[in-house]
């Protein structure tokens, strides 16, 4: 009797794992099947390259791809040095109160809801950007980049600190023993030995910047155009999905959001594969 039960429960374990993996596949399958009309008849290429002009019959998502890449890559340009600096302050330069305060703050920041950043962005950052740079409405790539920086930095900082701590102590002690300073130890020993952790933290954060919806939706302005400067309004793939969602279900306009979904799926999958190639799950698992 007990034996039979045990087999049933073990089957449940397996089915759960199988079901979860199936969900991952079916998400892609659903996006693909529903977006299929867009891809048939050699229209796939035009989807990527065309502009978005529903009244002319163009349903290209090129502006959104450009918007997503601009916002997320610029976010990384700001967030990467900032996070590296903070991680260095926490684990190398300062070992006292500031280090403790910063670490606790960063841990707390990982729990701040995304919509809060968007909300404060609209009422605090956007007017600031508008006043300081005299940039139209203030809803622009720059505003989104600054808020997204706050959103993605904490995870990156924690990943960096963790990878610094993983370098064996004896390596660093050797530098100190021959008269090196803490900074020298960090620059010439710790940093070169922790590059996998740095790459992984960077890649995961890039994935997060790509996939975030609310911040870009609320403060990037959402104009359908390829942003030409920091002060241009932009629409990301994620906000496009959230915005067009309300339109008529059978229209081509609506079908195009599945193309956006597929692109987001592919982008993030590529990043996840990159992380696995660099470090494998062991590293990621911490």
């Amino acid at each position: 009797m007990i034996r039979i039960n045990e087999k049933t429960i073990e089957k449940f374990f397996f089915l759960s794992a199988f079901f979860s993996a199936l969900v991952t596949c079916s998400i892609f399958a659903f996006l693909f099947v529903l977006g299929l009309p867009l891809f048939s008849g050699g229209r796939f290429f035009s989807i990527i390259t065309q502009p978005w002009a529903p009244h002319l019959g163009h349903f290209g998502i090129y502006p959104m791809i450009a918007g997503t890449l601009a916002v997320s890559l610029l976010t990384m340009v700001v967030a990467f040095p900032l996070s590296l600096g903070c991680a260095i302050l926490i684990s190398v330069v300062d070992r006292g109160k500031m280090s403790w305060l910063l670490r606790k703050t960063v841990e707390m920041m990982t729990g701040v809801p995304t919509v809060i950043y968007g909300f404060v962005g609209i009422f605090l950052l956007v007017p600031l950007v508008r006043e300081i740079f005299e940039a139209g409405s203030g809803m622009c790539v720059l505003s989104a980049v600054l808020m997204l920086t706050l959103l993605v930095s904490p995870t990156m900082i924690l990943f960096f600190c963790d990878s610094f701590e993983r370098v064996p102590r004896s390596y660093g002690d050797a530098v100190l023993a021959v008269g090196g300073t803490e900074i020298q130890k960090f620059l010439y020993v710790t940093l070169p030995h922790s590059w996998t952790g740095i790459v992984i933290g960077f890649t995961l954060s890039l994935g997060r910047a790509l996939g975030d919806t609310l911040v870009a939706l609320m403060i990037a302005g959402n104009a359908v155009q390829v942003p030409g400067s920091l002060f241009d309004s932009a629409r990301t793939l994620t906000s496009h999905i959230a915005l067009v969602f309300a339109a008529d279900y059978n229209s081509m306009e609506f079908k195009a959001i599945f193309a956006c979904g597929i692109f987001l799926y592919l982008f993030t999958t590529i990043l996840v594969c990159a992380v696995r190639l660099v470090g494998g799950r062991r590293k990621m698992a911490g």
Binding site: S20, A21, V23, T24, C25, S26, I27, F30, L31, L204, G207, L210, G211, D212, T213, T238, I241, A242, I257, F258, G261, L264, Y265, T268, T269, L271, V272, C273, V275, R276, R281, M284
Partner: peptide, 18 residues
């Protein structure tokens, strides 16, 4: 492992669309 990593990386808006 790979499937769950991919799933964890999916933007929430994609899950919503699904």
């Amino acid at each position: 492992d790979l499937f769950f990593d991919v799933m964890a990386g999916l933007p929430s808006v994609v899950v919503g669309l699904f």
